[in-house]
């Protein structure tokens, strides 16, 4: 039962990822990526991570993808790739490298291949959000705080990046326009 569910979800994730890669339209790409994220969220659930499942959906599928879609539409950047590719020669190379990377990853995965995850009493209670929260506020308190600072800096950075251009633009229009 689990295996069937995994296979379906994995197929959906792969299809979403490949479709994102090949879509000409950036909006489509974003939507396919959303599909992919949702599938991964389901996989998290299969791996006994209900908390991450929730975050994946809210933060990634919710907040981040909305941001992506917003920027795509704001900039009108749906289709910028209609001009001929100036470095088209590196596409086959990229594919070859991708195959090589995949090969290395698969080989590594097979060499250290773990089998079926262990069951038992410990497994039954694994992934309790309460346990995760406790860890966050005890052993990982410092990284947690640092994450907060990173987010703050990100906010400041975004404001600065856009404030600068605006104040300058207010003074005089850029010469190119």
């Amino acid at each position: 039962m689990d295996l069937i569910l995994f296979l379906i979800t994995a197929a959906v994730a792969l299809i979403g990822a490949i479709a994102m890669l090949v879509s000409r339209n950036a909006v489509h790409s974003a939507l396919f990526l959303l599909l992919n994220f949702a599938a991964i969220a389901v996989l998290f659930l299969l791996l006994q991570s209900p908390f991450l499942f929730a975050i994946q959906l809210t933060v990634y599928a919710g907040a981040i993808m909305v941001l992506f879609l917003f920027v795509v539409m704001l900039l009108g950047a749906e289709q910028v790739e209609d001009t001929p590719d100036r470095i088209a020669w590196q596409r086959p190379l990229a594919v070859a490298l991708g195959v090589g990377l995949l090969g290395v990853a698969v080989l590594a995965a097979l060499r250290y291949a773990p089998g079926i995850p262990p069951g038992g009493a410990a497994a039954a209670t694994f992934g309790d959000p309460a346990e995760l929260g406790r860890l966050l506020f005890t052993r990982y308190l410092l990284p947690f705080q640092v994450t907060g600072i990173i987010l703050l800096i990100a906010v400041v950075g975004v404001v600065v990046l856009n404030q600068y251009g605006r104040s300058k633009a207010a003074l005089k229009p850029p010469p190119g326009d």
Binding site: D2, L3, F6, A10, A13, L14, A17, I18, M20, L21, N36, L43, L46, L47, G98, V99, L101, L102, A105, V106, A109, L110, A113, P114, G115, I116, P117, G119
Partner: peptide
């Protein structure tokens, strides 16, 4: 349960994409 290696292979495929 699904073997962990399946997940790893899926992860590798997604990463490559």
């Amino acid at each position: 349960m699904v073997p962990t290696s399946y997940y790893i292979l899926l992860s590798a495929a997604l990463f490559t994409i």
